[in-house]
Amino acid sequence: MTAPARLLLADDHALVRRGVRLILEQEPDLTVVAEAGDGAEAVEVARRTPLDLVVLDIAMPRMTGLQAAREIGRARTGSQPPKLLMLSMHDNEQYFFESLKVGACGYVLKSVADEDLVGACRAALRGEAFVYPGAMSALVRDYLGRLRRGERVPSTVLTEREDQVLKLIAEGSSSKEIARELTIAVKTVERHRANILAKLDMRDRTQLTRYAIRAGLIEP
C-alpha cells in the first residue's frame, strides 16, 4: 500500500478544524500532517512542510484562503506544488470560479462537507476537478444557451439519460433530486455528472477555467 497523502488543514475556527480532521483521519489514505489558523500561517507552513494537498477555508483573517492559495501555488519552484481544495460557507458559484483561477481544483461547501469532503480530496489528489453543484448548473446553462444560439460548442454525443440529467442540472436540481426524479441511484447520477463534464471538456481545472472565462463567468 502506498503512503497516505499528506494534508494541511487551514481554518480559523479551531473546532471546525478538529471536526474536519476527525473526518479525514478516518480514511486510511489521508493523513493531516499540519494545521493552520489563518491564511498567512498556512502559506508559512506550506513553505517548510512537504505536502500533497492543502484544504483552505475561504474566509480567514490576515490572509483569505484565496490569497493563500495563490501564494502556495506560486511559492514552490523545485518540487511539485501541493494540490489545493477550498472549503467555504458561501453557496455561490463565483467563489468556485475564483478558486479555479487562483489554482485550486475544487470547492466544497461546508454544509455538505460531511458527505463530499473525502471524495473531493481524493479527486484533487488524482488531479481532477471537484465541481461544486451550483457551479455545474451555471456552466451547463451557459452551454445550453450557446447551443440554442447556434454557437460553436464542443461537439458531444450525450446519451439520452445524460441529456436528461444535464437539463435537470441546468435547472439547479441537486443529485438527490435528480435521482428521485429519474428514479435512479444517487451514485448513478454522480456517474452521469462525471461523464457529462468529461464530454463537455470540463474535466480538469485548466479546461474549466478556460470555459468559465469564455462564458464571462470570471475575468481572465
Binding site: 471546525v16 471536526g19 474536519v20 476527525l22 473526518i23 454544509s111 462537507a113 460531511d114
Partner: peptide, 10 residues
C-alpha cells in the same frame, strides 16, 4: 453548526 454537522457525522 458546521462543528455540529461534522461531529454528528463522526
Amino acid at each position: 453548526l458546521t462543528v455540529v454537522l461534522l461531529g454528528l457525522k463522526q
